[in-house]
């Protein structure tokens, strides 16, 4: 298993993934949640990786191989939600500005394609320079917790 871009400095760690088996990554690539993913309070360290180009990534728990989530970059996916990130949230993940943050939303991949949805109300913020992350709950009630992707095209 090879990495696309392997920084030299950091020691390699082994991570058991749900979709790609055992992989080795530089330790500095691991993400640390500074406040928990709601409902998964016991999980702290994750690997974010991709298995195909595009706006979807896997959020794989290091501690629990069975805990993996599919995340969406809602901006790359053209959903263009208006999200106002609080300065205290930026500070929590060590980001100086919104430019230093990658925003993901949690995808629910329901068996029924009409039910495939993403949570625009509670995005996951990852500090690009710090690899620190948190799930925030935005105050904006116009952002749906269940945004169905089948509505994505009509939204534009």
């Amino acid at each position: 298993m090879t990495m696309c871009a392997a920084p030299a400095a950091s020691p390699l760690v082994r991570v058991q993934t749900l979709h790609r088996g055992m992989v080795e990554v530089p330790e500095q690539d691991l993400i640390t949640f500074v406040s928990p993913l709601l409902g998964f309070e016991h999980l702290k360290r994750f690997l974010i990786y991709q298995t195909q180009p595009g706006p979807m990534v896997w959020l794989q728990s290091v501690e629990d191989p069975a805990a993996a989530f599919c995340l969406l970059d809602p901006f790359a996916a053209g959903l263009d939600p208006d999200m106002e990130i609080a300065p205290s949230d930026l500070a929590d993940i060590g980001a100086g500005s919104a430019n230093e943050v990658t925003v993901y939303t949690v995808l629910v991949l329901d068996k029924d394609p009409a039910q495939i949805r993403t949570n625009l109300r509670a995005p996951i913020l990852v500090g690009k320079l710090t690899q620190r992350a948190k799930q925030v709950v935005l105050n904006d009630q116009s952002l749906p917790i269940r945004f169905h992707l089948r509505d994505a095209k009509s939204r534009r």
């Binding site: 090879t2 990786y49 991709q50 298995t51 706006p55 790359a76 996916a77 994505a152 095209k153």
Partner: peptide
């Protein structure tokens, strides 16, 4: 179900 648009995030990728 998505209309895709660049740029997508840059994260480690496994073949």
């Amino acid at each position: 179900q998505l209309l895709l648009r660049a740029p997508a995030p840059t994260v480690p990728a496994f073949d």
